[in-house]
Write a protein that binds this DNA or RNA. Structure first.
Lengths: 178, 178
DNA sequence: CGTTATTATGCAAATTATTGCTTAAGCAAA
DNA sequence: TTTGCTTAAGCAATAATTTGCATAATAACG
């Protein structure tokens, strides 16, 4: 019930085709709402049937026609209504913690290695997020409303990565000492 | 491909029925791998077909028969193999960040309220986790390997909640100032 | 005492999401 | 110039998850 809304939000700025949306998602909303491009295509069909978006086919000679979707006023209303509904905290599924549940002497080293691998991965992510921050949001106090929302998404990403790295350090020490 | 493993991990300690597992999940693995009891029943059938668990029906007069499942040696092997595979970071879907993407003057107050609601919720969670910590893991340095794994799960929960609360505070200030 | 919750146990259908495939063009190196 | 990689668009099959159903005992409410 929420992929649809993530799409509507993306169409707020301007119209997009399914492909455009998929690309855009990868760099924006996708960080905290991951979707595949197939999901987007299917969802756009549904949204069009519901009257929340309107699609316009653009003929192309050399490649498949693209369908550009724009938000309708019904869609805009639906979006506003959704904004007033309460949200639940995200349910995250952390495979690594499931594995740690099976921790015992015999697999200790395996798991320490895996923790190190994950640590490196999160450090990389943090660097990526911080460079986006430096480039696009050097001074958050001067942002307009729309941009503030996006800034906060990135900020959450940075805080999360930092916490995860700190936890990895702890975990490596803790498992190693067992 | 990982609910199955979460179940196998739970069966490491001892045999359980589907219902037992569901109960146990709610308090342990479920914090970082949420599942419904229906999912567990279905997965148990699959695991039994694959030969990773063996189910034994226990007749009951007054209520539906229970089927108690135990890990087979094939299951144990499969579990060990899985532990050596690399994990990916969890993909979390944060509806609230999608909403913040639609931030503008008109919905500012709605979103500040929602942020406050969420903040309260995370404070509650943190308190819950910290009380479990105080009760079951007062001194992490003395834990055996198996318990260390579980301790780290809880620790992750606590760090995550603290970070989320800090982010909520930031976000409330930031959106409020827009 | 009758009605409503809660606990206990499990199955099946519907919905959502992921994986894999297809077509077709453009570019780049062997 | 043929082989291979990438972008673009979309469909179909499969897997994962959620919702809804069923049955029955026990506890609690008023």
């Amino acid at each position: 019930m929420a992929l649809s809304h993530a799409i509507l939000v993306s169409l707020l700025d301007r119209s997009h085709s399914g492909y455009d949306l998929a690309k855009r998602f990868d760099q924006t909303v996708g960080f905290f709402w991951p979707v595949s491009h197939q999901q987007i295509y299917q969802e756009l069909h549904k949204l069009a049937r519901a009257g929340w978006v309107r699609g316009e086919t653009i003929e192309q000679a050399d490649r498949p026609n693209r369908i550009v979707y724009e938000l309708t006023s019904e869609g805009r209303q639906a979006l506003d209504a959704w904004l007033t509904e309460p949200t639940s905290p995200p349910s995250f599924k952390e495979e690594l913690l499931v594995k740690l549940f099976a921790l015992e002497g015999a697999n200790r080293d395996t798991l320490v290695m895996e923790l190190g691998r994950r640590r490196a991965l999160h450090i990389e992510r943090l660097a990526r997020y911080e460079s986006i921050m430096a480039e696009h949001y050097p001074d958050p106090t001067v942002l307009n409303a729309r941009k503030r929302g996006r800034y906060l998404g990135l900020r959450m990403g940075i805080l999360t990565e930092r916490t995860t790295i700190a936890w990895c350090d702890e975990a490596i020490a803790c498992v190693g000492a067992a």
